[in-house]
Design a binder for these strands. Structure first.
Lengths: 151, 151
DNA sequence: CCTAATCAGTTGCATGCGCAACTAAAATCC
DNA sequence: GGATTTTAGTTGCGCATGCAACTGATTAGG
């Protein structure tokens, strides 16, 4: 009576699983970050990367994180307005800015890391430590394939 | 000279990897689906699920796919306008609609599956078949944790 | 030098999404 | 059976994002 149409459950489903898990995780993180003035999007990712690489410019972040440069510009602007990032004109390049974490950001880093760890622990709580490592490893391989591919 | 701030690369990074891979994948799929009138978002996911479960209602899709019910409503509306979905009022429930794939959708299904498989192949091309199965398995475990958790 | 091409960053626009508030139909309770 | 509560779906709103077009600075070619 109903059309058959069976997608083999193991084919092509990775995207949809990624999408679903990511969506769930995003919602949780948005709630967690709200009290700290970190906006709903992926601002925390930018913040982490500025903490990791003080002095980085927006273009580098855009390439590393695979966002659109407009998204980077707006996220950084919000982080600046929220007091987490200091934008200094690059002395050697009149077009670029160098991004630094503020004192507020540096003091916030342990909390940020903690919040992320909490969510991560919830996410992987059904995995053994070995499985978690496996998963990270596999995801990193996918990530590299994305970077090369670009077709 | 620069602040230390090293996030251990294997802790808490799953979310960011998921986010990045998902973002890349989304962009590719948007391009692929454009010629077929499938909008930029996750419409194809709804379409797949209506193909899988003809007669399903929106609420069920919302719960299964973990979208917001508003998102479901709008995606289904667009799929209807694009001619892929037929909305019939549920004879037993005056509030609900039963969603059916149109002929166009049924004819499109092989193509859809093919497009998804192509993207999937690109994504997992650096993985052995065994690793791909492992990955799917691990992601499904995460997905289940999301469903339970909800805290 | 002066022009052309490239590059860092910003802004306008369209779209997608989640939340909250709403409508209308069931279901529950008395 | 009438009032309350729950449920399926819609709409208003705000925000995040990608693309394309833009500005202004830098580099390359002549």
């Amino acid at each position: 009576m109903t059309a058959p149409s069976h997608f083999p459950p193991q084919q092509d489903s990775i995207s949809r699983l990624l999408s679903k898990i990511h969506r769930h995780q995003q919602k949780q993180l948005v709630k967690k970050f709200q009290p700290y003035g970190l906006g709903g999007g992926h601002q925390y990712i930018f913040l982490i990367n500025v903490l990791k690489m003080p002095g980085v410019n927006q273009d580098r972040l855009t390439c590393d994180l695979k966002f659109d440069k407009a998204t980077t510009a707006r996220s950084i602007k919000q982080l600046e307005e929220a007091g987490y990032i200091d934008r200094q004109p690059d002395p050697h390049d009149g077009r670029a800015y160098r991004l630094y974490p503020t004192v507020k950001a540096i003091e916030f880093e342990p909390t940020l890391r903690d919040l992320l760890m909490q969510e991560n622990r919830k996410l992987v709580r059904a995995l053994s430590e070995e499985e978690e490592m496996q998963l990270i490893n596999l995801l990193q391989i996918l990530d590299h394939s994305c970077e090369e591919a670009d077709g």
